[in-house]
Amino acid sequence: MSSPEVVVIGGGVMGCAIALRLATRGLRPVVLERSVPGAEASSVAAGILAPRIEHGEPGVATRCGVRSRELHERLAEELRERAGVDVGFRRCGAMIVATEDGEDLEARARALIEGGAEAEHLDAGEARLREPELGPAVRGAIDLREEAQVEPPVLLRALAIAAERAGARFRSGATVRGVRTEGARVTGVLVDDGAIDAAHVVVAAGSWTALVPGLPAPAQVVRPIRGQLVHTERRPCIASRIVFGAGGYVVPRPDGRIVCGATMEDAGFAKEVTLGGVATVIARATRVFPALADAPLVSSAVNFRPASPDELPLVGPAGPEGLWLATGHHRNGILLAPLTAVLIAEMIAEGGTSIPDAAALDPRRFARGSA
C-alpha cells in the first residue's frame, strides 16, 4: 500500500466524516480501525441533533452545535448523491417537558429565545395537544422546532461508502501501537505488521483516545462515560418529536421504532448492560410516556462517550507538528461530526480554518493548564 498523506485513527462516524472531507479535498487518507468501522459508540448512539437542549445557555458548545446541525442537512443530501443512502435526517423538532415542581420552563424558554432559538413555552394542556401520549406527570413543556435527528448506523455506512468512493482507504483489524515522530514532527504510526508513513495523523479514537500509545498530555484527559439505552417500538409511533424529560429522552423514528436513553455512568471501560441501567432508562421513559410500559423491549445497548474536563471537544493540533486530535465530544459526537470534519480538513489542507470558535476547542488548552 502506498503511503497515505493522512492516517486517521478510528473508524467511527468522526473518523469517517474526517476521511470524507479530506478525500474531497484531494488528500489521500487511510482510516485505521481495530475492529470494523462503527463497532463502538457510533452504531449505538440515538442520533439526536438538538444543541439547544443539550447545552441550554448560549456559548461555544451551543454555537458549534447549531452550526453542525445545519451542516448535517447538507451532508445528508451529499451522502444521498455520493453513496445513494438516505441517512434519516429529519427536522422533527424536540420538546423539553417538566415532570417535577420547581422546573421553571418559562424562564428557560425566554433564555432560549434570547439566544436565537425558535422556542415556545407550553402549559401542560398545550403540550398534550401537540403530543397526546404525554402522561399526567408532565406539567409543561418547551417546544423547539429546529432540532433534528439522524440514524447513526446508516450515517456511518454512508460516510464510509462516500469516503472510499472519494479516495479514502480503510484498514480493519489494525491496532495502533504508537505514533511515530522525528524531532518535533509526526512521521506516521506503528501497527502490528509494521509502520505506515504519513505527514499527518488524526486521532479520532473516541473514548479510547487515551489508550493510543505515545500521545501527548492533552489526549490523556479524555475518559469514557458509559451510556445505556433501550430500543422498543410502537405503531402508530408514540410521538412526532424527540422528547426530553424526567432525566432521559425518547427518540421516535417514523416507522415506529423508538430509542429511549440514556444513563451517564463513570464506570471506566466496563461494557455491560446492567439491570439497574435498563430499569433507570425505562422508568424515565414511562414517566413521560406511560403507554411505553406496554411496548416490547426489543433490545438494549451500551456505549462510551469520550468526555473532557470542560465538556468541550478536543479538535485541532495536539503537540508535534502533524498530530491532530478529534475527540472528547461526549454526548455530541454525532451532532458535531460534520463541523469537526470541516475544521480538521481545513487545518490540514490550508493551515487554518474558517470555523468560528475553533480556538476554544484547541486540545493544547489542557497542556497549558497542566504546565
Rank of each mutant, 00 (worst) to 15 (best):
A326H: 10
R284D: 00
A285I: 06
G316C: 11
T280A: 14
P309F: 07
L325M: 03
V315L: 09
R331I: 15
P317V: 11
L325P: 02
A301S: 15
G277K: 03
A301R: 11
P309V: 04
T286S: 05
S299M: 05
A279D: 08
R331T: 14
S300L: 05
G277V: 02
L325R: 04
H329R: 10
D294Q: 13
E321M: 11
P290T: 05
V315P: 03
S299T: 12
P296E: 07
G322M: 12
P306I: 03
P290M: 05
N303G: 14
E321R: 12
L297S: 09
V302K: 13
L314P: 06
A301H: 11
R284K: 08
S308Y: 01
R287F: 04
P296H: 06
H329G: 10
A291M: 04
A326M: 10
P296F: 11
P306Y: 07
V315R: 02
S308V: 01
V281R: 07
A326E: 13
V278C: 10
D310S: 01
V315G: 03
D310I: 03
A291W: 03
A283C: 07
W324G: 02
L314F: 14
T286R: 05
E311C: 13
G322I: 00
A326N: 08
D310E: 01
G322L: 10
D294L: 10
H329L: 10
V281W: 10
I282H: 00
N303H: 09
S308N: 01
V278T: 08
H329M: 11
L323I: 00
E321G: 15
R331H: 14
V302C: 13
G322T: 02
V298Q: 08
S299D: 13
A295P: 04
P309S: 02
G322W: 15
A307S: 14
D294G: 15
